[in-house]
Amino acid sequence: MNIFRLLGDLSHLLAIIILLLKIWRTRSCAGVSGKSQILFALVFTTRYLDLFTNFISMYNSAMKLIYLVCSYATVFLMYFKFKATYDSNHDTFRMEFLVVPVGGLAFLVNHDFTPLEILWTFSIYLEAVAILPQLFMISKTGEAETITSHYLFALGSYRALYIVNWVFRFYTEGFFDLIAIVAGCVQTILYCDFFYLYITKVLKGKQLTLPA
């Protein structure tokens, strides 16, 4: 554990909590992609199956459980409790366009051809692209609520901090996991355009709107 990883984990946790609180407080999930949230729930489910097979630390298990519970809670709020506020006609990205190719890739490129390892690889690849329905939704409506943009910034920062962590671990421990690194870089690159808009607009007090 190093400071970059800890900050990355906390940033990830912050993102998840911002989104949950936003939905709970406003009693609305307008502007949030339910597809992305389903994909994140699937990411956590397939990645954290090792909760049952491997114990690493209390911190590790507790964070995994919190991520899992929060992501299912978000999906529940969106599709059941506050379903009336869900903007489904703007959330039109087809999940199978991500899940099917990513599933195929996980079968072909992995560290070890075992069920748990393939599911872990699947979750790493899927996480890299799971935000696309959300970004697609914002590009369709042309804007995002400020709180939604804070959520996206925290979520994007998490993987960017992990990249710094991987560089650090490579030099200090000689540890590297090429699958996680490549997917993590792809994931971070997908947020770059958003980071630019966030810094140039949201941090100056304006709402996030896309240039016409």
């Binding site: 990830h12 990645r47 390892e117 872990w120 540890f175």
Partner: peptide
Amino acid sequence: RAKPGGKDEL
């Protein structure tokens, strides 16, 4: 390189 099955990162 990561040990398959035992991942310490989240």
